[in-house]
């Protein structure tokens, strides 16, 4: 029984997840199977546990003292919370983009090369190649190609966020977690990032938290609606937006609360 529990035909699978911060339960028996090369949107009102859920997949919740969880998170069939998991290795294959752009106070080039250098990759020609490839993938190349030595902090917010995406891509993860990556950006930057996510889907499995219903509708294949720690509904995005099964989902999507 416990053998078969660890098997999964999905890229990612959350099984019977309960999360507690101290006494307080913030996720309740969440199950979510996710196929590879898809975009999954996580929606729901503030404080319902979306970010907490997202941080489970790269174990960033581990830094919160009062955090503990029950249940399993399987990636490529393996429970990432078992004892012998190397958390650093895990994070190289599960990248994360944060709500607020958080570039390092380094040059554009060094920002991208950072994740490679800490893996001991120092060969100039290889770094050059990956840096260019990642920045191109993040649709930022034309804007920065002449200024790779310039401080990343001098870029605009939208450029910084694409730089952060490029930085994540450089270490070649297979999964990318995004926590409201466009919420601090202007409409044009937001559109660029949405377009980017569509392209990245070809190679990556993407989970994205968003407050923006239209955005979820535009970019995702599947959508999960969270409400007070419950995964109320999880289905094809099309289905969720046109014909939700649950009344609370419908109310939320139609903007009646949230």
């Amino acid at each position: 029984m416990s053998e078969s529990q660890s098997e999964s035909s999905f890229k990612i699978e959350a099984k019977n997840i309960d999360v507690f911060y101290g006494e307080k339960q913030v996720l309740k028996d969440v199950n979510m199977p996710i196929e590879g090369n898809t975009v999954t949107a996580l929606i729901g009102p503030s404080g319902c546990g979306k970010s907490t859920f997202l941080r489970l997949f790269n174990r960033m919740n581990d830094y919160i003292d009062v955090f503990h969880k029950k249940g399993e998170i399987l990636i490529d069939g393996k429970d990432i919370y078992r004892k012998k998991t190397n958390v650093e290795e895990l994070r190289k294959s599960v990248g994360m983009v944060f709500q607020k752009p958080n570039p390092f106070p380094k040059s554009i080039y060094d920002n991208i090369a950072y994740g490679l250098r800490i893996q001991g990759i120092n060969k100039k020609s290889l770094l050059d190649e990956i840096v260019e490839k990642s920045i191109r993938q993040a649709a930022l190349w034309d804007e920065v190609k002449d200024n790779l030595k310039k401080s990343a902090l001098a870029l605009s917010g939208g450029q910084q966020q694409r730089l952060c995406i490029a930085r994540t891509l450089a270490v070649e993860p297979s999964v990318i977690l995004m926590d409201e990556p466009a919420s601090a950006l202007d409409p044009i930057s937001t559109a660029k990032i949405e377009e980017l996510i569509q392209e990245l889907k070809e190679q990556y499995t993407i989970l994205i938290v968003t407050h923006n219903m239209q955005q979820a509708g535009r970019i995702s294949d599947k959508t999960g609606f969270f409400y007070m720690g419950d995964l109320v509904e999880f289905d094809e995005t099309q289905q969720i937006f046109t014909n939700p099964k649950n009344e609370r989902t419908e109310n939320y999507i139609s903007g009646r609360f949230g």
Binding site: M60, E88, R91, G95, F98, N102, Y114, G115, I118, T168
Partner: peptide, 16 residues
């Protein structure tokens, strides 16, 4: 003075 958010970004890239 080095903000937590940039440290977090480093951890998320797999840095110890």
């Amino acid at each position: 003075a080095v903000p937590l958010t940039t440290r977090t970004a480093s951890y998320a890239l797999g840095a110890t």
